[in-house]
Design a protein around this nucleic acid. Structure first.
Lengths: 140, 140
DNA sequence: ATACTCTATGTGCATTTTACATATATGTAT
DNA sequence: ATACATATATGTAAAATGCACATAGAGTAT
């Protein structure tokens, strides 16, 4: 984070913004599924791909736990791979249910993009549109 | 070590996934600030504005608690208004720190929009970047 | 006056999601 | 041997969110 998120001390009262960041919830699962849809992979590699995707702050614990949870839910499957050098890898494969999940999420994401557009329209100074009288304005 | 009991409820068809929804984190705070930047307001009214914004699921508890927290952080200020009929209202005003917060968040949101675009580009099938590693492959 | 409804603000508790710290193990290079 | 990169995992805490319920003023109908 840079210090733009920090407010200078005013009147002896010091304030700071914690994680001021626009991020979605449950983002990790779709990113994993999207990666696995391209090719089978394992935790360590998926971590790198996720960060290349724009999610640097991803820590191992969260990722591995999420993968096991996803397997419980049946959207991925795994098996050990020991053929390669180094520690064994738990290779993951996306299931049909996983593909459905991804499709479902993508639709939801589309919806959400409109909401974000609304936010920006308001932020940049245009009057708020009522949701039932939606009209297409140009983006910033 | 093995593929221990995962509930396999596959199906190419799309089905309902509980809680599968693209939603941002910390969304409520920016929405409140954006509303307050237009005019001073209070919890009950802000709730209606937020839902008009596309956040139907907003429950009172979360909103009021968030408002008090925001005041603690110094991004809004409040005072009671008793002049109008009905129960007293706690009127909120955005502070300079609040405006900074909002600006900061908006920048972050812009960044995030690009990430979302990447996600969609990948999802819809257009290759995005490094496909230099093709190990594994879909074995299903 | 009593009950009922709309407005308005709040607390308590549980669940879900995410973050942080740490533990374990294997192969490779020095 | 020991240092390092790879690879997976757990334990615990904090943060975010959801759900149920509590309180109360003011107007209206009975």
């Amino acid at each position: 984070m840079n210090n733009e998120g920090q407010e200078r001390e005013a009147g002896g009262r010091e304030r700071e913004f914690r994680g001021v960041e626009a991020r979605p919830r449950n983002w990790l699962v779709p990113v994993i599924l999207l990666s696995l849809r391209e090719w089978n992979s394992y935790g360590y590699e998926l971590m790198e791909r996720a960060s290349a995707f724009g999610f640097e702050a991803m820590n191992p614990g969260t990722l591995y736990r999420t993968l096991r949870q996803m397997e419980k839910e049946g959207i991925v499957e795994s098996s050990w791979e020991t053929s390669k050098g180094g520690p064994a890898r738990r290779m993951y494969t996306i299931t049909d249910a996983g593909r459905s999940y991804l499709d479902f999420w993508a639709k939801s994401l589309e919806q959400y993009q409109h909401t974000m557009d609304n936010f920006f329209r308001l932020y940049t100074g245009r009057p708020l549109q009522d949701k039932n009288k939606e009209e297409g304005g140009q983006k910033k």
